[in-house]
């Protein structure tokens, strides 16, 4: 009886400590900008419903977003994006699974801004490619603010840009990540 109790307590304790290592958000912001340098109009969009989970113990980092949640200024651009470019009916999600490679440099218990290096796999439009980038993790009042910026080459993900709009849509898109994570209770 005692051992059972101890085991139960131990597992409970383990899950509690485990849980406090994890931070998450379901309303992360991810921007992308694929405006070509000579383009007269901006080709950019934002999603405010990205899911992000960070395990501070291991540095494991995951993002997941729905392609249809990208909001454009022009409805036509949004429709083209979903129908012709990323085919969001066929590939509804984009995902990133990676790690903070210098996780030990971040003191999650102390407020401050920490430079981090992230590497992992980005899956979108049915293609998976390795992505490496640097960014910052800001520890502030028990929350984490994860910010990063990196470029993806559209051709790597088999996203083809028609010749007609080649002067507007760049061959590489800049992705900006801005997520405020809360501790997972």
């Amino acid at each position: 009886m005692k051992t059972i109790l101890i085991v139960i307590c131990a597992t409970l304790l383990a899950t509690i400590t485990n849980a406090q290592d994890k931070y998450f958000t379901k309303s992360g912001k991810i921007y992308f900008d694929a405006t070509s340098p000579k383009s007269p109009e901006n080709v950019n969009a934002i999603t405010k419903t990205a899911v992000c989970v960070l395990d501070t113990k291991t540095g494991n980092l995951q993002f997941s977003l729905l392609m249809k949640s990208f909001e454009f200024e022009r409805a036509l651009m949004q429709e083209h994006f979903n129908e012709n470019y990323v085919e969001s009916n066929k590939f509804p999600k984009a995902e990133f699974k990676g790690t903070i490679t210098n996780n030990s440099n971040v003191n999650y218990a102390k407020d401050g801004v920490y430079n981090v290096k992230v590497s992992g796999n980005l899956t979108m439009h049915g293609e998976t490619k390795t992505v490496e980038t640097s960014g910052t993790v800001t520890v502030k009042n028990g929350k984490l603010i994860a910010v990063a910026e990196f470029a993806v080459t559209l051709a790597d993900y088999k996203i083809t840009v028609p010749q007609l709009v080649a002067d507007k849509v760049a061959k590489t898109a800049t992705i900006k990540v801005d997520c405020t994570l809360d501790v997972l209770k």
């Binding site: 899911v51 729905l66 249809k68 949640s69 909001e71």
Partner: peptide, 21 residues
């Protein structure tokens, strides 16, 4: 709102249907 899809419970945070705007 406009439904943008479904996030399955793969991250252990519960599954969610997302409506936008």
């Amino acid at each position: 709102g406009i439904c943008t899809g479904y996030n399955t419970d793969e991250l252990g945070l519960g599954a969610d249907i997302i409506l936008n705007r």
